[in-house]
Design a protein around this nucleic acid. Structure first.
Lengths: 146, 146
DNA sequence: TTGACGCCCATATGGTCCCATGGTATCCCA
DNA sequence: TGGGATACCATGGGACCATATGGGCGTCAA
């Protein structure tokens, strides 16, 4: 099962570091991902993180469009200007930079959320609220759980 | 990963200088770029900066079109009239000239934004607004995160 | 002369590397 | 089955180093 599943909340220490949950690190190791491509999610106030092939997939999308089109420019602004490579330290932690804080509203705790081929960093409160809102929307549309 | 990624905001000092973020300087060194070609971006209120081959690429584009066409004329007006070469000082800083200030609205802080093969100088507020607008446009077009 | 720009050095902050600790779940053996 | 030992994991902190930033001169040109 080499995919990111479940969610967990960890504390940020005085130096601004937070441990990536061990199950996620196991998936990273299994997929041989040594450097994380992190970008500001297009939809939610969350940072999405995955392997470098995530970025390559985006860049392919740009290359297929006209490179000088406003759409391509817009896309690059998001995935290049809004993305960064990060590395975990020896203990499997990553530092929560202003790049992450400003976009997510994270202050002293991080909720890690599995999303199959990538995972996300959320502010704990924002995650609960957004998840609840998503459940509501689904109910309203009459889509019950299986 | 020799491309410009992420964004960071640095302060302009009393002499009008600002430090180029260290990751960007590392990319410049890796690509052996010693002189920066800076030009006013075609789309956004930002200054784009990259190696001299950026200018050469533009000039090639002009050469391929009819040199006397209105398009070629217009292009030259932008990339030659709106471009300039700049150098970093020993500490990796560049001076924010009126050329940059007038076009971008930068006053006391600069947001550096990576764009893969070049990077940009933005007014911090303008960058946040434009990026947010780009995300909105993407949502409206119905393109969700991966 | 004065202001802009080059080159030099100083410094505090913040990030990185390394090692330590406490708590918890798991395992093993009596 | 119970209790101790053990391995793993989240967390804490110290030392060191890179970086952003501030400022002093000297030079050159307006």
């Amino acid at each position: 099962m080499n995919r990111f599943l479940s969610h967990a909340t960890n504390r940020i220490d005085a130096k601004g570091r937070v441990s990536v949950p061990s199950p996620f690190r196991a998936v990273l190791a299994a997929l041989d991902i040594r450097e994380l491509y992190c970008f500001q999610d297009f939809l939610y106030p969350a940072i999405s993180a995955g392997g470098p092939e995530l970025l390559e997939r985006f860049e392919k999308q740009i290359a297929e469009a006209d490179p000088f089109s406003p759409e391509a420019n817009e896309m690059s602004l998001l995935i290049h200007g809004g993305g960064v490579f990060m590395k975990l330290d020896a203990e499997g932690r990553l530092t929560v930079t202003d790049f992450i804080r400003d976009f997510t509203g994270i202050t002293d705790e991080v909720t890690f959320v599995g999303r199959a081929d990538h995972f996300q960093l959320w502010s704990p409160t924002a995650f609960i609220e957004t998840q609840e809102a998503a459940r509501c929307a689904r109910r309203l549309r009459g889509l019950a759980a299986p």
